[in-house]
Design a protein around this nucleic acid. Sequence first.
DNA 1: GGGCGGCATTGACGTCCGTCAAGTTCGTGT
DNA 2: ACACGAACTTGACGGACGTCAATGCCGCCC
Lengths: 241, 241
Amino acid sequence: MTFSDANCFTCQSRRRTEWCVLSEDELGVIDKAKKSRTLGPGEILFHQGDPCGGIHCIENGLIGARKLDADGNSILLGMAYPGDTLGYRFLLSGEDYQASAEALKPSTVCYIDQSAIRFLLEKNPALGLRFLQRAARDLNEAEDRFLQSVTLSVRARFAHLLLVLKKRYEENGVPRKTTEFSMDLPLSRQDMAALIGIRPETMSRTIRQFEEEGIARFSGRRVHVPHTEKLLGALETDNIV
Amino acid sequence: MTFSDANCFTCQSRRRTEWCVLSEDELGVIDKAKKSRTLGPGEILFHQGDPCGGIHCIENGLIGARKLDADGNSILLGMAYPGDTLGYRFLLSGEDYQASAEALKPSTVCYIDQSAIRFLLEKNPALGLRFLQRAARDLNEAEDRFLQSVTLSVRARFAHLLLVLKKRYEENGVPRKTTEFSMDLPLSRQDMAALIGIRPETMSRTIRQFEEEGIARFSGRRVHVPHTEKLLGALETDNIV
DNA sequence: GGGCGGCATTGACGTCCGTCAAGTTCGTGT
DNA sequence: ACACGAACTTGACGGACGTCAATGCCGCCC
């Protein structure tokens, strides 16, 4: 674990966080309470079962949420990008973490103890509403994933995933305006497989299928899509209103 | 649509709602703003695509959330019991309803306009936190459903569903202490099928399988489980930590 | 450098579940 | 009471995806 210096006032990701509704004074409370650290890929932020004593706020990088099954295989449940806050759910409900958090890319993350959070939640109702809006978005996303997992084919779910990763890639980097695009996938094959609820073998086969159909070309973690509309055609999204 | 009289102060379900943190005065705001109505089974509370102008609060009965696919088939997404509030997510995010709400049993539901809600959210931070806790619980539930849909067999998912319905049945009625139990299912076969992401035909076959194995006996909407531990044995829950 | 362990790919095979079609039961309205 | 439609059941069939096993690839550590 490496500690780093960070500053809430100059944080590039702040406008994406819930803290954007805080006054200067209130932001100072966060800034004083925070502890910052950097993680390399694979490093663990917290473990499933650990008590949740605060909130993690991602300044930059990429964090993944995992569960482990009995065989020791880890299942990637979701990803958190810069500006996302991690753990508010368990802080509020008082439960222990139900998943582990692991850096998927080199990341800088701040930890804010619950005392500061609770103080500000009492003081500024807008902060709670911000968290509530975040929860509402997360909830919509979770329900969509369930619906997709039971209504869409593996092909379509993988196409969805690629488009979501593209969107995130562009939000956190350089957007492209052309019909074609390339990007570096932040995930291993088996992590992508877990995200859409399939086995690594099926992931390999779906990738090969996409290559054979000219939808995308894969080389390691690099992916190139020559015609975005071909990828859109694999969505099968027509049949749900 | 039938209107009914209701009273927040004497409401039997209030202790389960978010309003339980309100003072007498604040409860009066809700009580004045609410409009109460009763619905028979099949009656629609609101439609997918309607604008969300307030919150629905279930006094008693059972409400289901549905989406429609292009074929006109309705997919049951979830259920709301007495004390649950419906629509806070869309109110906060300003979106239209993304699903319809339909009474599954005779129900009494109050509608509270957003102006009262927003007034109280600003005034009493504890109310926002209550909603946040609700959202956190809903989120955990949604993620569990996704995990189950990709890791568990149809058998196991149906066993889960029966146990959830049992829990709800006992919370809203008479609990039993014995190893066996009976209950009336509040759902049609196809609604149960949709909840666990399978087709009605597969639902029928799973029910027959349970009967053949002596796990449960079904007669119309009545279900009898002679040995609860047999049902627990069908959960296959061992392999997820 | 050599060996080891995790990730990825590929093939063969099996099975679970979706699809289609037909038939039955149930509920509702006239 | 009868008729109609919706919900439910059952069977036959096929395909998509999981499972198992073998192999290749690559980075890491002794």
